[in-house]
Nucleic acid binder design. Sequence first.
DNA 1: TGAATTTATGAAACCGTTTACATGGCGCTC
DNA 2: GAGCGCCATGTAAACGGTTTCATAAATTCA
Lengths: 348, 348
Amino acid sequence: MATIRDVAKTAGVSIATVSRVFNGNTAVNEDTALQVWAAASALDYWPNGAARSLTTSRSNTLGVLLPDLFGDFFSEVIRGIDQLAKREKYQTLISGSHASVEDVLTATRAMRGRIDGLVMMAPDSITVESVTRIRRRLPVVLISPPFAVDGCSSVSIASFSGARAVVAHLIGLGHREIAMVAGPAGNVDAEERLRGYRRGLKEAGIQPRDELVVQGDFRESSGYAAAAALLDRRPRPTAVFAANDCMAIGLMSALGNAGLSVPHDVAVVGFDNITMAQYMRPPLTTVHVDAYALGQKAVRLMLDTLSDPESEKVTVQTIDVILKVRSSCGARPAVAANTLNVPESKQL
Amino acid sequence: MATIRDVAKTAGVSIATVSRVFNGNTAVNEDTALQVWAAASALDYWPNGAARSLTTSRSNTLGVLLPDLFGDFFSEVIRGIDQLAKREKYQTLISGSHASVEDVLTATRAMRGRIDGLVMMAPDSITVESVTRIRRRLPVVLISPPFAVDGCSSVSIASFSGARAVVAHLIGLGHREIAMVAGPAGNVDAEERLRGYRRGLKEAGIQPRDELVVQGDFRESSGYAAAAALLDRRPRPTAVFAANDCMAIGLMSALGNAGLSVPHDVAVVGFDNITMAQYMRPPLTTVHVDAYALGQKAVRLMLDTLSDPESEKVTVQTIDVILKVRSSCGARPAVAANTLNVPESKQL
DNA sequence: TGAATTTATGAAACCGTTTACATGGCGCTC
DNA sequence: GAGCGCCATGTAAACGGTTTCATAAATTCA
């Protein structure tokens, strides 16, 4: 493997000059630079990243910590992170599925010296003190954090208001017995959606009842399983709000198998607006969350922090959500039978 | 930031001893080791990764190059990669969406000195020579490569045989006018599936016709769009094979909007068996591909190569696929109306 | 008891860069 | 033509570790 010394020797200059050429230092003669480029290209040389970050104490790499969840939503978040990072000449060191606090600390330790900042999306398995500890050595940006941490910018989803809007919409359609398939306990967004659901009911003068809430885990199968429990309730709920689309889809599948028609017998609403939602039969009413933007904003906040490390400025952002009314809630008739209408386009 | 010297000073030993402690060298006195641990913990010290890889010329990091595609399938592949890597104490440096050869080379250059090996899944934007060039400095494992490269292990999907099985199955059900929504040109798996489709037809004595093949791009919207083209054909196809599930789902949505019933009017089959497939109405017949295993095997091959760099051994693996018959192809009646049957569980 | 061996530790070289500082040559100015 | 400043380049010291080799102390053995 060619090193800077090999290039220097080949080009007949010192290693300092080679370094200057590769770092765009203008104080180097044009002809000399050309020679260096030629030598480098002949030797297929490129500066060694580890050595570089050792001297500069910058790695141009962002660490990303993910929770155990996967699927469409998360892959969009990652895409947002990766693309903006790439555009800004940063690399992405990813580490997924962290179950415990210990796990998270181990992962960040292993990243030590390799990253300039850390984007964390591990909501349920962190504590204020563990994040604070990481923050002491590294800039940290949190996605959907369950708490605020001194010195950490963060970006959250407007889960509460989205859920409230869902319930208000269902109530506007005449529903009174509205059930919910909740997300995993400990997950902030799951809890905010549950809170929004309850608030929405209260605002309509309806007392939320615990027996109308079924616990899920954000996966299709738990939505599917929830159906059985909900169909036992008397009076039977006329509408179900699932804390995310995956569960809503599992739920709809189970309802169909049980011979119930959506939305005629039961209205269903989800959350996230994953790609699949619009292709369901009936198309799923849901709350649109721009997952790509979520990832992008997190990186943007990180870059801000990195560009001015002294600044104590902390930004707390919230991604707005939009209720996306389709047919699964019964708000409007299913699309006329023989028209081929184009699906909603998705920005890339 | 505490360095090894700080720890050495605090513990009253030399830096060599500290290093030995952190590298599990047994030749260090137990009491001394304890002192070192205490000092390290007091200073919140952990070895700097960049410095470490500079001396050892190992980074314990795997580079991962992804294509521009995202969604459920790819996120499963990444999960497989990340989890096995993590278990084997490797980190994952990810870089997505590489459009051109130049792009790929730039990305790998930026990783220089930071990774021990490269897992590439960028099928359409690479050439033999560019990979060969990368291979000269780094172990490379390819996922679904369009060609073999000297010295590179690879793992592929049995796309050809899967597609052939789909067609055979449809023919067994009595279909003769079988159309296909193909994947993006240049993508190996797309092309293999197309080839398998044609072969399947030929084996049944049916001459494949180009007008029954519509070009797609693996996304839902292109499946949706394909419906319009296919419904114009006379005689109208009685079955459509989509090169992946996303397109099949888009297609089914469009067929529904056009007033056609699946599978009664048109049978539909997909490929990949993404999570969503079984929750569709009707549940989608498809070819199961274990994306998680695909990612895992790629990492396994990489670890093999890394553990014995001298060995010239190259392994070329293929992930087997299984035809997953559900209702969308009309092979068996839709699930009885009022039974709640549990969805197929998915291994995690 | 002294030589040989083992064990625990330290000193110093090295990994491949960047960068502060030194240096030498050249063109100006007075 | 001496003095000055500037420009292009080189020298050498970091950066934070690992590892080879040397060494002192402790143990073994005759």
